[in-house]
């Protein structure tokens, strides 16, 4: 895979910002509208996949190496877990929403759901990087010696 035709490359260059923004939008407003960390993460991962298809795997691995993706994968999950444990610490109960609800914003505003947006961001990081990891490992299976990369599929992404 060495990239596709200039038409695809140009379109991908124009579209990439919008896809990224849409993914971030879905993630950040996940507590208000349909969407959330998983959907946003999938959208962002699809951006990576689009860029890989358009520019080739060398390009995407240069900007987003496998080690980084693997680390972000774990970091996302750990953030999620830390938020849960902080709820234990501050609220006395695992997964307790220890930030004040409806603060600082009013109901139905962006900052109004306590820890849920943080969880959404963590899920987004995890889903985006692990989906990208799965794709890139399958795509370059013959080049890089792959070691069961797709195994760390943890479903705790969805415990919200």
């Amino acid at each position: 895979m060495n990239g596709m035709s200039p038409i695809v490359q140009t379109v991908a260059r124009f579209v990439k910002v919008f896809i990224l923004l849409y993914g971030i939008y879905l993630t950040l407003t996940g507590h208000l509208t349909p969407g959330g960390g998983f959907a946003g993460g999938v959208v962002i991962a699809s951006l990576y996949i689009l860029l890989t298809l358009a520019y080739g795997k060398k390009f995407s691995l240069k900007y987003f190496p496998r080690k980084l993706a693997g680390s972000l994968d774990s970091v996302g999950a750990l953030i999620f877990l830390v938020v849960a444990v902080l709820g234990f610490y501050f609220g006395g109960i695992f997964f307790a929403n220890f930030l004040q609800k409806n603060y600082p914003g009013a109901e139905f505003s962006l900052l109004s759901a306590g820890t849920i947006p943080i969880n959404n961001i963590a899920i987004c990081i995890k889903v985006a990087s692990s989906l990208f990891l799965v794709f890139i490992i399958m795509a370059v299976a013959r080049i890089i010696d792959k070691k069961d990369g797709s195994k760390d599929y943890k479903q705790d992404q969805e415990k919200e």
Partner: peptide, 24 residues
């Protein structure tokens, strides 16, 4: 009883921490 979630949190946290730090 209040420590029950640790049965799930410790192994999951340990697993992610290992993938994050121990690959070298």
């Amino acid at each position: 009883i209040e420590l029950l979630p640790l049965f799930i949190a410790i192994p999951l946290g340990g697993a992610f921490l290992i993938t994050l730090t121990a690959w070298k």
